[in-house]
Nucleic acid binder design. Structure first.
Lengths: 242, 242
DNA sequence: CGATGCATTGATATCGGTCAAAGATGGTGG
DNA sequence: CCACCATCTTTGACCGATATCAATGCATCG
């Protein structure tokens, strides 16, 4: 691999909806020509992985970029102290595989059973260098990721555990507008521990925060992996009270 | 402005060294041809602004992307609660101007007197769509920004104020390897309050954290705007003890 | 029906936020 | 050149929220 590839852009997680886009009505939807879809399909490989499977490890050679077709993936890093930081949860049509100097920066693991598309980074780069419009979609998506990352920084800055958890639930809701539309049901495929590592809280605090949201009548946690938004208005108010 | 521009990528802050690159020996340096430099120069405007000048405000129409030629800029958001979050400090050869839906996502303000280059976003997009290699440099830079943003998330996750401040000082040191090489001197152009808003601490905590780093003999704060790294080894250890 | 991992709940200690006041610092104008 | 003022910074006392430690409760899967 030549220098330009070695210092390649290492595509970002959550480039939503780039390949294999279906309905794609959302504002950030990528618009690809059929030819572009074809080219992306040609270099990709479809994979099915069971829950808990590690997709790649930190420091491993970053030869691929992945797209989620189905299921949920988490990206995380284990810190020297033993703490774990979950950097992102990836859902259908998100991309992941962020790297630096040819090595992945974090681990990726399937939370549920998943179906993925895998792109060789080198092929993808060639494609982008030949097709500025396609590349532009990627640029837009990475930029989108950057915005999300900055939002998350603000989220983490909140001191109150209940507020953080509320933001998390609402964020997940926006991710599945279809499912949660009428019922207010929001699936939480990950564990409390994952949520804690994502929000920068202890898992006990997440648990207590959940209890508080229930006590306040904002959210009902039907079971471990399903929340129901009871009072969207007041929940929004809490979320906005950054 | 047509649709493609309206949903344009809104270039990220800190696209280091894209235009007007001088020495550029660092690993992430962008490699531009003379022709590319020329083209970038043609669409840019050079600006000089005094300290404290607001460069743009949140929600303003995001028509430009900026590059720092000299001086220091901060990007920040004011939250409803009255708290302020500093998203980034920008130094020479950083780019900034992150936007969404044609509006800037935060405010940018000069900390010191600054010299900037200003690029009309629309021209820049045209340029990138015509030159995939140039665009690729931008993609790489935005990706770099994303990595930095994720690092920052980890930084913020630290509970101990001293550790956060230590990370901040070390990060600034890496930013000015030349200056801080032998002497261990690290300039801190921003105020304690800015640092606090960046680290997610109160300014009192920053002050106390600084006192602790001095007490422990790791860093000496010569004056408000200058730190001296006294014991780089032990400081690194503290930084790594995430 | 254990058994294992996950989640909740409780008690306690620690650390940073907040409020308050005093101490530097730097710039301005007399 | 100095005095003064505004701004920034430091320090202290106190309080509250979360981490931590510990134990119990609850599923899910052999």
């Amino acid at each position: 691999m030549k220098k330009p590839l070695a210092s390649a852009p290492h595509l970002a997680p959550s480039l939503r909806a780039v390949p294999f886009l279906k309905g794609a009505a959302d504002r950030d939807a990528v618009v690809l020509t059929n030819r572009q879809r074809e080219q992306l399909a040609r270099i990709s490989l479809r994979l099915r992985l069971p829950a808990r499977m590690v997709i790649y490890r930190e420091e491993a050679a970053a030869d691929w970029v992945f797209a989620v077709a189905e299921g949920v993936v988490k990206c995380y890093r284990d810190l020297p102290s033993g703490k774990r930081v979950v950097g992102a949860f990836l859902f259908a049509q998100d991309l992941f595989g962020l790297a630096e100097n040819g090595r992945y920066l974090n681990c990726a693991q399937a939370i549920t059973g998943v179906t993925l598309y895998r792109f060789p980074l080198s092929d993808l780069i060639v494609l982008m260098k030949h097709d500025a419009d396609l590349q532009f979609q990627f640029l837009a998506k990475v930029t989108h990721e950057l915005r999300e990352s900055q939002r998350r920084t603000i989220l983490i800055n909140r001191r109150d555990a209940a507020g953080r958890l509320a933001m998390f639930v609402v964020a997940l809701m926006h991710r599945h507008p279809a499912r949660s539309a009428g019922s207010g049901l929001v699936p939480l495929p990950m564990t409390r521990s994952d949520i804690a590592d994502f929000l920068g809280l202890s898992l006990e605090s997440v648990s207590r925060a959940a209890a508080e949201l229930e006590r306040r009548g904002l959210v009902r946690f039907e079971n471990r992996h399903l929340a129901r938004i009871v009072d969207a208005a007041r929940l929004s108010k809490l979320v906005a009270a950054v």
